[in-house]
Amino acid sequence: MTVAVTAGGRARTTSLRHRLAERGVDRTLLLLAPALAFVLVLFIYPFAYGLQLSFTPAEGGGALANYREFFSDPYLRNTIWKTLGLGLPAALLNVLASVPIAYLMRGKVRGKRTLTTLLVVPITLGTVLTAQGLLMYAGPAGWLNKLLIVLHITDQPLPLVHNWTGVFLSLVITGFPFAFLLTLSYLSGIDPSLEKAAATLGAGPWERFRRVTMPLLAPGLAITFTLSFVLAFSVFPSAQLVGKPAGQTRVLSIAAYDAAFQKFDYSMGCAIAIIMAVVMLLVIALVMVWRATLYRGSTGGKG
């Protein structure tokens, strides 16, 4: 602002700044700039770059050549079903199993902190260690099979690793604690006095669960399911290590990785990554549409 500026000009600039400040836009917002630039450059731009790359196939043949190849080659196309065939049952089991356990733990229960702490362990250890552990423990000479033979449940060691079962087990080991902790935090957000009110009105335990808790919990369960599904859907290390990466458990992420970093066809790799994102979004959208039909009011609690 120089002295030469007329009074009218000054008034206009101050008023603009003032108006912006009133809407919360001032210099403090500059603090956002580095983080915003970071996410745009390293997250949004790579996605856009990958999308564009997927439409410029390495071997020519038009913009859609990669996608056409993916959907016409059964070996590639079936990776979608294999991924869904692992991710959906695993996520469903994890969410369904966590409801009764979280229901028991919703109040002040002894050992709650211990249990939640223990449950964090498999998640922090991660899928690579889980995979190696499964190979040892559930392998043909592992303790699990030995025990099953000693107990005469089976004569032959059960094939629990290097197939679908192995990956499924690893998804349950890392996914169940995750689903449980989320469900527990949603359940703790439901006001317990609602249930007490239902009890005073004569509702039994099962009725209270079915008619009071469950409807309030359902939207939270939809979110839990979505996050568990996303987690299980992007399975990579365990599908490689305890699965059969060339056959039964050739999931989308393996196909994408192979294309991009084994065959060095980055264009195809990005195309598969995009297909993976789209399939995931479709499932999430379906769950969210279902969630929109549920009760969405207050749960009366702190959540």
Binding site: L42, F43, Y45, P46, F47, Y49, G50, L51, L53, V230, L231, F233, S234, F236, S253, A256, Y257, A260, F261, Y266, G269, C270, I272, A273, M276, A277, M280
Partner: peptide, 12 residues
């Protein structure tokens, strides 16, 4: 999930 955006990111 990291593997989804990781592939385009690593390519870049």
């Amino acid at each position: 999930p990291p593997i989804t955006y990781g592939i385009p990111l690593a390519t870049l």
